[in-house]
Amino acid sequence: MTSSAKRLGALALAATAFVAACGGGTAATSPSAAGSSAAAGASTGAAASGVAGPSACVDGSITTSGSTALQPLVDAAGKAYTAACPKSTISVQGGGSGTGLTQVLQGAVQIGESDVTAESKLKPDEASQLVDHVIVRQGWVMVVNNDVTGVTSLTTQQATGIWTGTITNWKAVGGPDQAIVLILRPASSGTRATFKSVVLKGANEASGQALTEDSNGAVTTAVGTTPGSTSVIGFAYYQANKDKVTAVGLDGVQGSVATMLDGTYKLQAFGHMYSKGQPDGLTKSFLDYMMSDPIQKTLIPSLFYAPAQ
């Protein structure tokens, strides 16, 4: 009896610890893991193109968190800064746009990255405490499973039909006679919010007929392995997985840094870095560095983003 009771208690404890560990792991590691794998690919690109450091160093230590779509860029920029300025530390974390905005508002981090504006997420009195720094334009691309042949571009109307569930077979848009499997990001993600406002003009996605995957990496895997599937992923993730998924243009325009810059490719949005109040010290120096030529002209195109201006 006692041994049984003891074992039961130990098991319960172990189970709790296990569940707690898993829960925590999901929050912290899963987005950053997705980000860091892209960042790893990114940093080699940055090293190859030789990104110059900032013109003047400021010592100190800052932490940034937020959008996983922007994380590869901020991570590479942070590494380039600290490589030139060994006395400063810039720690770049993921967590999602909401996490970035919440943490910068609370003062837990000095910079919060977001795919969407603070005004769209926070209450007006909270958003007014943050200063917006538009640092980059980021693009997304619609991708389909490699077995969906003959669909090279969708019109806004066709894409809206697919995402809202009125078009359910690829035949209707010039593809094979195959059911469409829609894969969404969570409704709270910056990717989905951007797609919803730019392409769907606010119409609700048919989430009741779709699958939901929680990161660019998971979506890419799901589209690559699920016949007839389609979703939206960031440029950088598409470039890293060109053989696994097929890109589809929007309104006849294929997504690229060039078409983003000339404005013909619509599926793009500004990437924001927020500071609480006017930045100073290393925070200001790093934000200035993000707007400098080495980042805007060299690093950003190499990672498939487009300069902010």
């Binding site: 993600s189 989430s207 939901t212």
Partner: peptide
């Protein structure tokens, strides 16, 4: 899939998975 479960062969969702999906992106 955030709808009532329809059958063993169809996609569905749970409390824990929705929390992990959304928590990073909400404020």
């Amino acid at each position: 899939r955030p709808v009532m479960p329809t059958g063993l062969t169809a996609p569905m969702t749970t409390l824990t998975s929705q929390i992990t999906l959304d928590m990073g992106n909400t404020v």
